[in-house]
């Protein structure tokens, strides 16, 4: 393997890691703050990319489709939270079952509407060229995705550490009961977190469309990788989700090149090592749920 192909694989891994980060960030905060393992989180990714596909088919172009898909997915997340999740707060098993059932409903509905053959989202024409990044030629679109991921990470880091809402989230992850004691309207915070998490997953779906394509089952693949990232990075921390996502993204991409049949096992070995050495994840602060 030449340096230039290696560089290309690493960049691909980073791009994939950024897509995972966008999902894992929401999943991690929802779990950390609300103690919900949202098994329907992959659904937001799935719905996002398929909805964007339809808009693009209708001739809206990539960017409007991206925005519309995010809005629709955020609305879906909000409705899900308001109508269903709200009824089962505090009941761990019910929450899991509910989100589990929802993920099947949506996966099947998507299959019903869009069929089961894989589809792809075209790369937006403005970014459909290759850039010379020194060691290798690399698609500009993927550089763009990496850039968006880093921007998002910076934004979320700023929010987590420098804003009031970030302080609320940090306090809430450490001690859920404290939120109520602070006199904060938890309902609004929860709905907002859920909607933002959904929007991020939707964003990831649309951005991932031109790279990974779309097919039924990608939702659970993405979900499982994100769950591993949450375990590796630690609950309720965006920094953990970011580092974890890059780690898993790189392992997955390089693993596919070198040991195609053992990629998943390698990811899992990472998770096991983290569990053994730091049971709360690399950057986890709260106790294990």
């Amino acid at each position: 393997m030449t340096t230039s192909t290696l560089a290309m694989h690493i960049l691909n891994g980073l791009a994939y890691g950024m897509l995972l980060f966008m999902i894992a960030a929401g999943l991690s905060i929802i779990f950390g703050l609300m103690n919900i393992v949202n098994l329907a989180h992959g659904t937001f990714y799935l719905v996002g990319v398929y909805v964007a596909y339809t808009f693009v088919q209708q001739g809206t172009g990539f960017w409007p489709a991206l925005l519309l898909a995010i809005v629709i997915v955020a609305a879906l997340g909000m409705v899900m939270e308001k109508v269903l999740m709200e009824r089962v707060y505090g009941k761990e098993l019910e929450q899991v079952l509910l989100t589990f059932g929802l993920s099947f409903i949506f996966a099947d509905v998507v299959k019903w509407i869009w069929g089961s053959s894989p589809l792809t989202l075209p790369v937006p024409s403005a970014l459909d060229f290759s850039l010379n990044v020194g060691l290798t030629e690399f698609p500009a679109y993927r550089i763009f995705v990496i850039g968006i991921g880093c921007l998002l990470a910076a934004g979320l880091w700023y929010m987590e550490n420098k804003t009031r809402i970030g302080a609320i989230i940090r306090a809430g992850v450490d001690d859920r009961e404290m939120l109520a004691a602070l006199g904060i309207n938890i309902k609004i915070v929860f709905t907002a977190i859920f909607a933002v998490g959904a929007a991020l997953a939707g964003l990831s779906g649309v951005l991932g469309g031109p790279i990974m394509g779309m097919y039924v089952g990608i939702d659970s693949e993405i979900l499982v990788s994100s769950l591993v990232i949450v375990v590796v990075g630690g609950l309720g921390t965006w920094k953990g989700a970011f580092i974890g996502a890059i780690l898993i993204g790189l392992t997955d991409t390089l693993g596919r090149v070198w040991f195609p049949s053992l990629t998943m096992a390698m990811i899992f070995v990472i998770m096991i090592m983290v569990l053994l050495i730091r049971p709360n994840g690399l950057f986890g602060r709260g106790a294990q749920a």
Partner: peptide, 23 residues
Amino acid sequence: SSGAYFLMITLAFGQMIYAIVYK
């Protein structure tokens, strides 16, 4: 681990076995 954490880890473990058999 216990509760939701246990559930999440067993899910990931199951999917890993699935992926290995699949691949």
